[in-house]
Design a protein around this nucleic acid. Sequence first.
DNA 1: TAGATTGTTAATCGATTAACAATC
DNA 2: TAGATTGTTAATCGATTAACAATC
Lengths: 213, 213
Amino acid sequence: MSDVNPVALPTVRRLPLMLRHIQEHIAAGDGYISSSLLAKELLMDPILVRKALAATGVVGVPRLGFPARELERSILAFLGWDSMTDAVLCGVGNMGRALLGYQGFQQYGLRIVAAFDIDPALVGKRINRIEVYPVRRMKQLIERMAVRIGIVTVPADVAQSVVDAMIGAGIRGVWNFTPFKLIVPDGVVVQRVDLASSLAVLSHQLAMTGAKQ
Amino acid sequence: MSDVNPVALPTVRRLPLMLRHIQEHIAAGDGYISSSLLAKELLMDPILVRKALAATGVVGVPRLGFPARELERSILAFLGWDSMTDAVLCGVGNMGRALLGYQGFQQYGLRIVAAFDIDPALVGKRINRIEVYPVRRMKQLIERMAVRIGIVTVPADVAQSVVDAMIGAGIRGVWNFTPFKLIVPDGVVVQRVDLASSLAVLSHQLAMTGAKQ
DNA sequence: TAGATTGTTAATCGATTAACAATC
DNA sequence: TAGATTGTTAATCGATTAACAATC
């Protein structure tokens, strides 16, 4: 059902960082970039870089490397970042505001077109030129604007009901910032940004190394 | 050097979500929780749950499951969340402000004791009762407070120099929110929260399933 | 030509899944 | 006792790493 993907997930995850470095090389005037150079910059195995670049379909030139601009174009296309995709955000709390204020999503092909919150004090406000609407209008606006991506930054206890409403309105991709596993039907994809997991690894490793010394 | 860890990293990553569910069960008055029930709630393989719980050292009781409070205590200890750890944050932009405002870190044993920024307009302000200091005082304050965790929310182009300064002052764990791979010496651990990677997976999967239908 | 880099195929490694005995 | 669950050991699966021929 959901697995049309022959490219390993870790490979997909690595592409944005590579893209960033490739873009720096383009800005520096480089026409070609070798996987070995990129690997050195990223402190990464050159084979991993080569595998990732191979996934984009670009063919390299022995001795020279990969054509930089073609690489950029192919990675953007592979990730679906070559054209803008509209998104809505629900939950204008700390995290919601941070994401609304972030200018960088544009380069990832993401454009937040509307925000939603239950707090009447927030409704009608604009954050980074994005208007905050009442949650009860969410379904209508998602449908009217044919938005496919929903960003969930509400408190954990209402996350599931918000995502249910989003999916009912036509959302196909959910970016989940709550510390909660959302249940979605087949055909809808979820990515969770899990601060707790990340901090767990950090503090556990810190506890380990600290104990050793 | 860094590998004293016999527990698989994915296992560590799963623990916070399990902890949350266990705490809910405790609040509901349950004395014991079985790995099969937990697995059902988390839409996860029961064996993965059992493996993760085994990592904490708690022994379960056949037919009953694991003692809930002991499980909570052991997970908190395993993650180093059973006592408060001080942290500083550098870069009071959108993301920095969101993290400073977030109340939930307390339950992860994390207490942000100071923030730093170069913007004079921000210096002296308090966000969620945490004071913002000028960056030039960072070294001194980290040393004086003996802080071990540094949160990096500065723009990408100054991230490396900020982290160098932090490490020079005694920081041993870095929580990196920039889209950039930071170079740190042995003995210092870094965890990166990578929004771009997460979005890459989401938009790529979306592009895949969209293309299929 | 020599040498560096690509691209592919095989080997290794680690995590997930399966199987099953032990236990309350 | 019967049955559900734990905990451990083996099998599978997938990603990373290694090896090497092809190519400019």
